[in-house]
Nucleic acid binder design. Structure first.
Length: 850
RNA sequence: GCGGACGUGGCGAAAUUGGUAGACGCACGGGACUUAAAAUCCCUCGCCCCUUGGGUGUGCGGGUUCGAGUCCCGCCGUCCGCACCA
C-alpha cells in the first residue's frame, strides 16, 4: 500500500540538504554555459505575499530547469531595503527604520526559504547596508566626475505637513496621500542625472530587445517621446524674440497667434510690472492637473500686447498671449497657434476670436475655406500657403526646415518628452548623497577614501521633516578641498537608484569596489528578468540608463541589462463587503460606503456569505488584486504550512497563463495538493523487473512530453507545461505494467523536479538514485519517438466535419481521397454524386466540395 | 482625447499560427468501494432537438477562402498605459 507524501517533513529535509551542500551557489569560473535568471527583488515590507510567491516560483522553475539542461545558473536574491514605509513605521510605532527593515528581512527570508527556491543566498544583499550603498555612492561620484550629474532649481510637490517631497503618484487630488495636506509647488535645489543625454540610445535600444513584451517597449517608447520638428524664433515688437518648437512647420502660413507658458520668462517679466498679468499667471497655476480637470478646463489666455513677426511675411504681426495650456517644461515653453490644424489652438482661437485659416486640405471639404469646430490633423495638400501650395505635408515640412536653416532663423530639431531624473529626496532612509557643500568651493564630492558616507543611527522621527537635516553633528564636516567649515548634503538618493544596479552587484561583489568588470561581464546581461508590469517604465528605464551610463564612462561593457523580460500577472481574489452608513463630516449627511471584510470575517451560508460577528449578509464584490485595503489577501505562510511548498508552487503555475491574473481559490490549491499525492503514489508504487514488455504508445507520449515541456518552460508557458504533465500522468496511470511504464515514471521525477522539487528529491532518493535530482540532467529526447505513425484524418464536406479516418502517417493524397470517398457516412451524404472539387491536406484532412 | 491589449463552456484555459473548437485543470452531477465518512477509483459534462442521428456554437454585423477562434472591414464591451507634449 502506497504511503502518503509528507510534504512538511520532506520540505524541511531537502531544504537543509540544499543549504548544506550549497547546491545553488553559482560558480563564476564554471566552464558551463551561463544563464542569469533574476526576479525583481522585494521591498521588505513585513511578510511575503502571493504575488511574491508567484513571481519567485516562475523564476525558480526556469532556474532549476536550466541547471538540469547543463547550465551554470546565477539565481540570486536580495532586498530593496530603503524607502518610505520604514520611515512611516518609525513615525507610527517609534521604531528605528533600520531595525524595522532588518527584522522584516529576517521574516521574509525565512518565508522564501520555506518555499524551497533554488537561490544563491551567498550573494544576498540589502541596499540599506553600507557595503551596498557605499559602492553606490562611489558610482554616483563617477557619474558626477563625468558630468552626468548636475544640480538645478526645480519645482517639486511639497507636502507642508510631512515636510517632504512627494512623487507625482503620491499626490492624490492635489493632496498628500498620507497627510492629506494641500500639496504646494516649491522650488528646490535638486540633484539630477542626465538621462536625457541617453534618450536617443534608450529609444533605439528598444528595437533590439526582442525578448521583451511589445507592450513594455511601447510604453518606454511613448515615455521617452521623441518628436521631430523645427525650432525657430519670432522677432517681437519690443525688440526681443521668442523661440518656439513645432512638429508642424508645414502649417506656418496658418499661424494666427503665439502663446507662452505662465512660467515663461516673457510672462514672468510682464508680471513684474503688470498686476493683471500676475493675476492671470496665478490663475493658471491654481488649475488642477488631474485628467478630468484638464479635459474640461477652458483654454484661457492673457494678451501681452506684444506682437510677433511672421518669418515668411514681415508684414504679418501675430498677437502674443500667455496661455494656460502651454507647458514650460516641454519644447521651448512657447508655441505658435495654427487653429485650423490643432484642436487646442482652435478652441483658443474661437474663444478670443482669432483668425482661422485652413492651410492643409484633406481633399474632401465641400467648402475648402471653412473650418468648423474640429481641427483637421490628417494628411493632405498645402493650400493658402504661397510657395508651399500643392505640396503634401511631408514635403512642406522638409521645405520649411530647409528654408529656415538656409535663411538662418531656425533649425530642424528633436525634442524629447523624457526629463532628466531628479534623484534628491528629503528623507532619512536612503543612500546619503556623497557631496559636501562649501561656501567657498561649492559642491565638493566626498573623497573616495571617506566613503561610505554612513547614515547616522541616532535619529528621531517625533517631528516631521528630514532627521538628517536637523541632526546635531552629522552634517557638519570640513570641506575636503579647503578645510573650511562645510555641510554635508542632507538629501538622500531616490530608491530607484538602488535598484538600478543591484543586478550588477549580484554578479560580482568585491569588497573594495562596486563590481569587478570582468566577472560582471561574464554574467550580464540578465538572461531572463521577471517581475510586475508596474515597473514597465520607471525601474526598467532607470536600470537601462544606469547600465548605459556605466558603459559610457568605461566601467562596464554592457549595453542592455536585461536581455529577456517577462511581466507576470497579479494574484487576485474575490472581495467581500458590507455596506455601512456613517455621518459625514458636516454632521448631517450620511455616507454609505463598503466595509471590507476578510475571509476570516465571513462564513458560507446557502449561496452567499454572512459576516460571522454580526450575521449580516455579505456582498461578494469583484475579483481584484490582493491588497490589505480590500482585505482580500491570503497569507502564503498558512497555505505552505497546510499544503506544503510543492503544492503551493504547483498551483501558482497551473491554469492561468503567467502574464495574466491568477484568481486564487481554495479549491485550486486543494487540487494541486491532490495531484502531488497522486504523483507520490506513482513514485511509491510497485515496479516490474527489468525485462518487462514495451509500450510503444507510452514511450511516444513520454518523449513528446519531455520535448514539449522543455519548450513551454523556456517560453515561461508554465500552464501548458503543467497540462502536458497531467496528460502524461493520466497516460501512465492508464497503462498496464511494463518496462516502458517504469521508464516513464523514472523520467517523470525529473520532469516535475523544477516545479515540485521536494517531492522529486524524495522520490529520487527513495528510488535509490545517487546525488540530488537538482543536479540531475534533463531526460534526453529520442527524436524518432516524437512522430506519430498513425494520424486521424478529418473528412469534411463543404468544410463541415462528417467523418474521421485513422490512417498511416504519410499516406498519399490519392489514397486519402479514395479512403474518404469509400467511407459509409460520406457515401450516404453524397448520394452517389461525385464531389466538384477535392482538397487534401496530407496527414490532416480531406475536404470534399459538393 | 491618444496609444495598446483582450473578448472561447458554470469557471481557469488550450488550439501545431488558416485545417477535427473546448486538450488539461476546477466545479457540478451520477456510480463503485465503506456500517458510515474521508481518501481513492470509474462515468457524464458547450447549447438545442425528432438522440445508433442531426442542428448550432469562439462578443455582434459583414467580407475573403474549399475551409476562419485564427486574416480583412465596421461596431459593442472590458482592462491597461499616457495625457493640454505644440
Amino acid at each position: 500500500m502506497a504511503s502518503r507524501f509528507n510534504a512538511l517533513k520532506a520540505d524541511a529535509v531537502w531544504q537543509k540538504v540544499w543549504d548544506d551542500a550549497r547546491t545553488f551557489a553559482a560558480d563564476d569560473n564554471s566552464p558551463k554555459p551561463r544563464s542569469y535568471v533574476l526576479e525583481m527583488f522585494p521591498y521588505p515590507s513585513g511578510k511575503i505575499h502571493m504575488g511574491h510567491v508567484r513571481n519567485y516560483t516562475m523564476g525558480d522553475v526556469l532556474a532549476r530547469f536550466r541547471r538540469m539542461q547543463g547550465m551554470e545558473v546565477l539565481h540570486p536574491m536580495g532586498w530593496d531595503a530603503f524607502g518610505m514605509p520604514a520611515e512611516n513605521a518609525a513615525m507610527e510605532k517609534g521604531v528605528h527604520p533600520g531595525g524595522w527593515t532588518r527584522d522584516n528581512i529576517g521574516v521574509m527570508k525565512a518565508q522564501l526559504k520555506r518555499l524551497g527556491f533554488a537561490l544563491d543566498w551567498s550573494r544576498e544583499l540589502a541596499t540599506c547596508e553600507p557595503d551596498y550603498y557605499g559602492h553606490e555612492q562611489a558610482l554616483f561620484l563617477e557619474l558626477f566626475r563625468h558630468g552626468l550629474v548636475y544640480r538645478k532649481e526645480s519645482s517639486v510637490n511639497w507636502d507642508p505637513v510631512d515636510m517632504t517631497v512627494l512623487a507625482n503618484e503620491q499626490v492624490i487630488d492635489g493632496r498628500g496621500w498620507r497627510s492629506g495636506a494641500l500639496v504646494e509647488r516649491r522650488k528646490l535645489s535638486q540633484w539630477f542625472l542626465k538621462i536625457t543625454d541617453f534618450a536617443d540610445e534608450l529609444l533605439e535600444g528598444l528595437s533590439g530587445l526582442e525578448h521583451w513584451p511589445d507592450k513594455v517597449r511601447l510604453m518606454q517608447e511613448n515615455w521617452i517621446g521623441r518628436s521631430q520638428g523645427l525650432t525657430f524664433s519670432f522677432a517681437l515688437s519690443d525688440g526681443g524674440s521668442v523661440e518656439v518648437f513645432t512638429t508642424r512647420p508645414d502649417t506656418m502660413f496658418g499661424a494666427s497667434f503665439v502663446a507662452v507658458a505662465a512660467d515663461h520668462p516673457i510672462a514672468q517679466a510682464l508680471a513684474a510690472d503688470a498686476p493683471a498679468a500676475a493675476d492671470f499667471i496665478a490663475l493658471c497655476k491654481r488649475g488642477g492637473t488631474t485628467a478630468a480637470e484638464l479635459d474640461t478646463q477652458e483654454k484661457l489666455g492673457f494678451d501681452t500686447g506684444l506682437t510677433a513677426t511672421h518669418p515668411f511675411d514681415r508684414t504679418q504681426r501675430l498677437p502674443v498671449y500667455i496661455a494656460n495650456f502651454v507647458l514650460m517644461d516641454y519644447g521651448t515653453g512657447a508655441v505658435f497657434g495654427v487653429p485650423a490644424h490643432d484642436q487646442r489652438d482652435l478652441d483658443f482661437a474661437r474663444k478670443y476670436d482669432l483668425r482661422v485659416r485652413r492651410v492643409v486640405s484633406g481633399g474632401d471639404e465641400t467648402d475648402p475655406a471653412f473650418v468648423g469646430n474640429t481641427a483637421y490633423t490628417g494628411p493632405g495638400t498645402l493650400v493658402n500657403s504661397h510657395f508651399l501650395d500643392g505640396m503634401d505635408v511631408t514635403d512642406a515640412k522638409r521645405t520649411v526646415i530647409q528654408r529656415a536653416e538656409g535663411e538662418g532663423w531656425g533649425t530642424g530639431s528633436t525634442v524629447f518628452r523624457l526629463r532628466d531624473w531628479g534623484v534628491s529626496r528629503q528623507r532619512y532612509w536612503g543612500t546619503p548623497i556623497p557631496i559636501i557643500h562649501c561656501d567657498a568651493c561649492g559642491a565638493v564630492p566626498v573623497p573616495r577614501d571617506q566613503l561610505p558616507v554612513i547614515l547616522p543611527e541616532d535619529v528621531s522621527f517625533d517631528i516631521p521633516g528630514n532627521p538628517l537635516d536637523r541632526h546635531p553633528t552629522w552634517k557638519h564636516v570640513p570641506c575636503p578641498t579647503c578645510g573650511a567649515d562645510a555641510r554635508r548634503e542632507t538629501d538622500t538618493l531616490d530608491t530607484f537608484v538602488d535598484s538600478s544596479w543591484y543586478f550588477i552587484r549580484f554578479a560580482s561583489q568585491p569588497k573594495d569596489k562596486p563590481f569587478d568588470r570582468g566577472v560582471a561581464e561574464k554574467w550580464l546581461p540578465v538572461a531572463q528578468y521577471i517581475g510586475g508590469v508596474e515597473h514597465a517604465i520607471l525601474h526598467l528605464l532607470y536600470a537601462r540608463f544606469w547600465t548605459r551610463a556605466l558603459r559610457h564612462i568605461g566601467m562596464l561593457d554592457v549595453a542592455e541589462p536585461f536581455a529577456g523580460l517577462f511581466t507576470q500577472g497579479m494574484v487576485t481574489h474575490e472581495t467581500y463587503s458590507r455596506q455601512v452608513t456613517e455621518t459625514g463630516s458636516d454632521g448631517v449627511d450620511t455616507i454609505t460606503k463598503p466595509l471590507w471584510l476578510s475571509l476570516d470575517d465571513i462564513e458560507k451560508r446557502g449561496d452567499g456569505y454572512i459576516e460571522r460577528a454580526t450575521g449580516e449578509a455579505v456582498t461578494v464584490g469583484r475579483i481584484e488584486k490582493m491588497s490589505k485595503s480590500k482585505k482580500n489577501t491570503v497569507d502564503p505562510t498558512g497555505i505552505v504550512d497546510q499544503y506544503g511548498a510543492d503544492a503551493t508552487r504547483w498551483f501558482m503555475l497551473s491554469d492561468s497563463p503567467p502574464e495574466r491574473d491568477l484568481p486564487w481559490s481554495e479549491a485550486g490549491i486543494e487540487g494541486s495538493w491532490r495531484f502531488i499525492q497522486r504523483l507520490w503514489r506513482l513514485f511509491d508504487g510497485e515496479r516490474l523487473e527489468e525485462s518487462a514488455a514495451k509500450n510503444a504508445e507510452l514511450d511516444r507520449k513520454l518523449h513528446q512530453t519531455i520535448a514539449g515541456i522543455a519548450v513551454d518552460i523556456e517560453a515561461l508557458a508554465f500552464n501548458k507545461a503543467v497540462a502536458k504533465l497531467y496528460e502524461l500522468v493520466n497516460a501512465i496511470e492508464r497503462a498496464a505494467p511494463s518496462g516502458s511504464r517504469d521508464t516513464a515514471i523514472a523520467a517523470l521525477m525529473r520532469l516535475i523536479a523544477p516545479m515540485a522539487p521536494h517531492l522529486a528529491e524524495e522520490a529520487w532518493a527513495a528510488a535509490g538514485n545517487d546525488g540530488l535530482i537538482a543536479d540531475a540532467a534533463w531526460p534526453a529526447v529520442d527524436p524518432a519517438l516524437l512522430v506519430e505513425d498513425e494520424v486521424t484524418i478529418a473528412v469534411q464536406i463543404n468544410g463541415k466535419l462528417r467523418d474521421t479516418l485513422v490512417m498511416a502517417k504519410g499516406t498519399s493524397s490519392e489514397a486519402l481521397e479514395a479512403a474518404a470517398l469509400a467511407s459509409d457516412k460520406i457515401m450516404r451524404i453524397l448520394e452517389g454524386k461525385a464531389p466538384r472539387k477535392v482538397i487534401v491536406v496530407p496527414d490532416r484532412l480531406v475536404n470534399l466540395v459538393a
